[in-house]
Computed example of a mutant assay.
Amino acid sequence: MKSIVTRKYLIPFVLVASLFFCWGFAHSILDVLNKHFQNMLEISKTRSALVQAMVYGGYFIMAIPAGVIIRKWGYKAGVITGLILYGIGALLFVPGERMMSFEFFLLCLFIIGCGLTCLETAANPYVTVLGEPETAASRLNLAQSLNGLGWIVGPLVGGLIIFGDSGSVAFPYAVIGIVVLVIAVLFSRMQLPEIVEESFSEKAGVDKLSKSVPYLFGLVALFAYVAAQTGVNSFFINYVTEASSTITNQQAALMLSFGGMGFFLVGRLIGTWLMNYLSAPRLLLICAVGAMICMIGVICGGTVGLISLIVTYLFESIMFPTIFALALQGLSTSATKRGSSYLIMTVVGGAIAPMLMGYIGENNMAIGFIIPLVCYLVVATYAKKIKKTYE
């Protein structure tokens, strides 16, 4: 059994993997904001979905500039830029809470989204090249386990503070803003190895990407997965509170934290272990089919729907890092840097799905989960298609 992380790259791996927690927290607390803004600002589900739309829209707009930064100045510059933007956007929530303007909050979230884009564009591919190519998917899943921890903490903090007695949205963002800016200072003083790449022309890099079937189909699959994940997260609290009149918003947020996101973290740990025995495409196919079955249960509603909604997180846990790693596998270092920018752009799927789900499920949230069902079908098709290449 090959080592997932070699001793040579152990410290850089640990440092970069710690960043995954930061953006896991940033994404998961959005799901609390979504419902909070519906209540406090009296807006519709469709309009509240702009919370996700602004963050994931930032990914689409910032992905190419982030890629340019990384190619010109390296992965470390991409990480520091991302942390600074993330910190600024988070701290702007302090004046935002005094203004209580939905539009200003959206601006803050857009800036955070731009910062997260730089972080993910740098950290995801960096982790894949810190070791042997055949263990890239396992390595990225291991790093993403910390991301899973961030996904647990986000709704936990949001549920206890935002849905708590204080009702403050500024406090958790002020704390995380200070933390990430401190991390940015630390990273600026650390020596991280830059992956040396071969001589390369821009046209050659584009040609390599355009000829890679796993990469091209991976763009579609990643778009679909992020759309599904974001849609499920965005309306988890809505679905749970509509399904049971006895469950409060705060209780639903805690269910999302310990139930859904708990399964998400466990799934990533189990997935990393299972990849020692199953190929990444085969495991991805199994998980995609499992998620589809769960979505059918969610649409049916009732107790089965609630259980299915939580179990979905177990199946979707390994999808993002696995698709990302499979799409980049076999590419040159230079093509990987460029390709990761385009892959991050597909995260814009997270801006589209919640709005569609909010519109379809305005009166009955269960119906809106048809959108994630279709998205998981796309992921299953991708896994089945490339499984023959790797087995």
Rank of each mutant, 00 (worst) to 15 (best):
K45S: 10
W23T: 00
E242C: 01
S188K: 05
V129R: 09
M1D: 14
L106M: 11
G115A: 03
L181N: 01
E316D: 11
G302W: 08
K387W: 12
G339L: 01
V298Y: 06
V5M: 08
S257N: 06
I112V: 15
F25A: 00
R47Q: 15
N141M: 02
K388S: 13
D207W: 10
V129P: 02
L285K: 15
R7Q: 13
L283V: 00
F102R: 10
T246D: 14
I4N: 11
F223M: 03
T121R: 05
V68Q: 03
I69M: 09
A137C: 04
V79A: 00
R98T: 11
N276G: 15
F236P: 07
E120W: 10
M261N: 15
G58P: 13
Y86E: 04
E134T: 15
L373Q: 12
V16P: 00
V378K: 12
R47E: 15
G67V: 02
S341Q: 12
M99P: 06
H27V: 15
Y59A: 10
P372G: 10
F315L: 04
C294E: 04
A224S: 12
L91Y: 07
L377A: 15
P12I: 01
I323A: 01
L156N: 05
I43Y: 08
G350R: 09
I88T: 13
S332A: 00
E316G: 08
L186S: 04
V55D: 10
F105R: 13
T128I: 05
I183F: 00
D207C: 06
M275K: 12
L331C: 05
T322M: 01
C22R: 03
N34S: 09
A66C: 04
A90Q: 14
M1A: 12
G96L: 04
S234F: 05
E42V: 08
L33F: 14
T322L: 04
F235Y: 11
I371M: 07
I310D: 10
V196D: 12
A143H: 04
V298Q: 10
G361F: 06
T241M: 07
F21V: 09
R139G: 09
